[in-house]
């Protein structure tokens, strides 16, 4: 019995909304998001500028729309990096039970203990601040949680009798990993990906705020927050709109992750 649960629906709708917004921004935005027009600086929200304008006269709504592209891009690449490294590591650690498996997991713990933002700032300092370095750094910092979740799932699969049967039929470890373990941990990967996505969105915002993320003029929600600092009292809306956008995006991906987890949980699924 598979049913859609409220978290899954709410998360799905929010995430779909963000994706649509990003796609629309490619073909249409109310104004050019990077167009500087000193004549219309710091305008209050109005019919012509729904969310107002910033200190350079750029339209805030357009910036938020275009900024969602950065957010999604960062999320996709960071989660991709994390999954591409973390999933094989987790499966490997589960399948080689002796010391190599232990070494992988202890190395993993070490990385887990390292603050993600610090790692990203180090990357930024060494390779120069850019969206790419931010993405890669956040991705690497998300590897341990991936590896950990996938390892526990893979250990469970390795204990099943169908893996035993495959071994008894002479299957080598690599095909077992590919044909049996990987397909049976895909639900875990999906759940972990949406949770990591939320973390990546937040981390990108934090990095851009600190100046280690997306460099100007590419719009980014995090940098919009940073630029709004000096107007926190005179024009708080400049902080509020990107802040709300970040909060909604993080909420959306977390809800999606929760919803997917509930849906894939075999214990709930078997309930009659």
């Amino acid at each position: 019995m598979k049913r859609l649960n409220p978290s899954l629906i709410a998360g799905g709708v929010i995430v779909a909304g963000i994706v649509v917004m990003a796609l629309v921004s490619f073909v249409w935005t109310p104004y050019d998001a990077t167009l500087v027009s000193p004549a219309s600086r710091l305008l209050e929200p109005s019919w012509s500028h729904w969310f107002g304008t910033d200190k350079f006269g750029r339209d805030v709504l357009s910036q938020i729309m275009v900024g969602s592209r950065t957010t999604l891009f960062v999320g996709v690449v960071a989660v991709g990096v994390a999954a591409v490294i973390g999933v094989p590591l987790g499966i490997l650690a589960a399948m080689v039970r002796r010391w190599p498996g232990e070494v992988i997991m202890r190395g993993n713990d070490l990385l887990l203990a390292f603050p993600a933002l610090l790692l990203a700032i180090m990357f930024g300092a060494v390779f120069g601040a850019s969206t790419l370095t931010a993405m890669v750094a956040i991705g690497i910092a998300s590897v341990p949680s991936f590896a950990r979740v996938i390892r526990s799932g893979a250990l469970q699969v390795m204990r099943t009798e169908y893996v035993l049967a495959a071994r008894a039929a002479g299957r080598q470890p690599f095909p077992i990993a590919l044909r049996h373990v990987l397909p049976n941990v895909t639900s875990l990967i999906t759940v972990q990906a949406s949770v990591s996505f939320a973390i990546a969105v937040l981390a990108e915002a934090a990095l851009s705020f600190l100046g280690y993320g997306t460099p100007p003029p590419t719009p980014s929600w995090g940098r919009m927050l940073q630029e709004s600092q000096e107007f926190l009292f005179s024009a708080p809306r400049l902080a509020i709109f990107p802040g709300i956008a970040i909060a909604i995006a993080v909420l959306g991906f977390n809800l999606l992750g929760d919803g997917l987890r509930d849906r894939f949980d075999p214990k709930l699924e078997d309930r009659r």
Partner: peptide, 20 residues
Amino acid sequence: LRENLQLVFQDPMSSLDPRM
């Protein structure tokens, strides 16, 4: 051996890969 000796297991739920 892998050809000549085969096994049947106890648990009909866990002995078949659910994704195949």
